[in-house]
Design a protein around this nucleic acid. Structure first.
Lengths: 147, 147
DNA sequence: CTCCCTGCAAACCATTTGCAGCGTA
DNA sequence: TACGCTGCAAATGGTTTGCAGGGAG
């Protein structure tokens, strides 16, 4: 896997990412929700027939995750989702089971616990997963009035 | 799916679970770690050739999860794990990426946050996933001395 | 006879891999 | 020429489904 300057102008440092990566990145910039690889591929192909194939989308996402520009989110339905992140940061989500919207929480709720887990169990935390499922305010209200 | 008394003596209330469920339950009782459906199946078949097939193991696990006797844990490698739980309760894990051991945390760290998330976002929590990955005390020490 | 648990084999489906083509340096 | 991104098609692998057999009541 090539992480830096595989293509493009190496003097200026521009175009550091492969074509595929840039297309995927552009697609993710337009999404305000968690998006699957299949969705990204479908979206790109819809607006341009010569868009990257599914294989390239998967490989690009791998690179982008390794670069820290994108984080992958496993919501447990067998299809990973992806989203842009501020490099080096990460966050968690409230995922509405009705409208599929995802609200992202500003801060990582687990970071505070790391120290106490470390001292209590001697466990060295490398990484963690936290996702919350339920109904967003809108859908919860709809559910109330419908019943 | 039949959740109650599909087989067995209905007068006494015993044998409320299907044969498959009971075999799976027995297998889980012997495990002290998270266990996959494939592992349960392999283990049962090894000690008894007439043990339930893989299909039955999957269907039994579904029933047991629905009954609240078992919880499923998704550790993100495409293979769900299962473990016995006190009915109605659930907990999270510290999962060692080196030796695969899982330490389960006594209390749910998210429960405390539910109220604040509810009032802050109007989000109604139905369920959540929290798993922590890293190195257990033993493996962390080994890693230190090896390097 | 009816119900439904059970098992095998086939289907499923997101993701990964093999391999040939091609653009860039 | 050498390298490596790219795409198609095939393989992968855990899980689910279709369907026939069989035990319990």
């Amino acid at each position: 896997m090539t992480l830096e300057a595989p293509y493009g102008n190496r003097k200026t440092g521009e175009q550091r990412l492969t074509k595929g990566c840039r297309r995927v990145l552009a697609a993710l910039e337009q999404m305000d929700n968690l998006t699957s690889a299949q969705d990204i591929h479908g979206m790109l192909r819809q607006s341009a027939p010569e868009a990257p194939g599914l294989t390239t989308v998967y490989r690009s996402l791998d690179s982008l995750v390794a670069l820290g520009l994108v984080q992958s989110v496993d919501i447990g339905d067998g299809e990973k989702r992806y989203e842009l992140v501020v490099p080096g940061e990460h966050h968690h989500h409230l995922i509405c089971q009705h409208c599929r919207a995802s609200i992202h929480l500003d801060e990582c709720l687990v970071a505070n616990l790391e120290q106490s887990i470390m001292s209590q169990y001697g466990f060295v935390i490398r990484h963690h997963v936290l996702e919350v499922f339920g109904l967003c305010a809108n859908c919860a209200e709809m559910e109330m009035t419908t019943k």
